[in-house]
């Protein structure tokens, strides 16, 4: 019987976070599913599917809490349905960049959501320097109402936000 949890860990980046966390899980009999682990603004962040065969949330907490404390990481656990082997294939990629300002993500993603975009992955970065920061975002998703709808939506956004550089590119997947 599988008991999947989404484990969230956040804390100041340092060497050994991934190895110590995953070793504790492995020694405790857990199995890992899909995960995203990356450094965001000096913090190391982990979102990771973990399957613990027995003991549930209390047992998982017991395994992870000592390591999280040692590494000064915030730990959060949610019971989830572990739906593996059901990947959705993105058919469109949207890239956005511009001078950093509040509201950019909200405006772009609202327009895209209204035009039927289901976001599968979004990654963004702040670059430049403190005086002249720029914002850069890559989105992969499924155009549920067609790519034309997204192009039209972005065109109208662009008319009101000419400072944004937005590119939309269909993703063709060659399946062999």
């Amino acid at each position: 019987m599988h008991h999947w949890f989404m484990v969230t860990l956040v804390g100041q980046d340092q060497i050994g976070i991934v190895s110590k966390i995953t070793t504790a899980l492995y020694q405790g009999g857990c199995n890992l599913g899909e995960a995203s682990m990356l450094r965001l603004g000096g913090n190391f962040t982990i979102m990771m599917m973990v399957d613990i065969p027995t003991g549930g949330k209390d047992a998982l907490n017991h395994l992870l809490q000592p390591v999280a404390k040692e590494l000064q990481l915030h730990l959060h656990l949610d019971a989830i349905e572990g739906l593996l082997h059901h990947h959705q294939v993105p058919n469109v990629r949207v890239s956005v960049h511009g001078a950093d300002r509040a509201g950019m993500v909200a405006q772009v993603t609202s327009v895209l959501a209204n035009a039927g975009l289901n976001i599968l992955a979004l990654e963004s970065d702040v670059g430049g320097n403190a005086n002249h920061p720029f914002y850069l975002m890559h989105i992969e998703g499924i155009a549920t109402a067609g790519i034309l709808a997204l192009e039209e939506a972005l065109r109208s956004l662009f008319a009101s936000q000419p400072d944004l550089k937005v590119t939309l590119e269909p993703i063709e997947t060659v399946v062999m």
Binding site: R93, E151, F158, P162, V166, L168, E169, P170
Partner: peptide, 12 residues
């Protein structure tokens, strides 16, 4: 490595 980039045109 983007290819076939469909860029929004300004003001249209």
């Amino acid at each position: 490595f983007q290819r076939k980039v469909y860029e929004s045109k300004k003001g249209t």
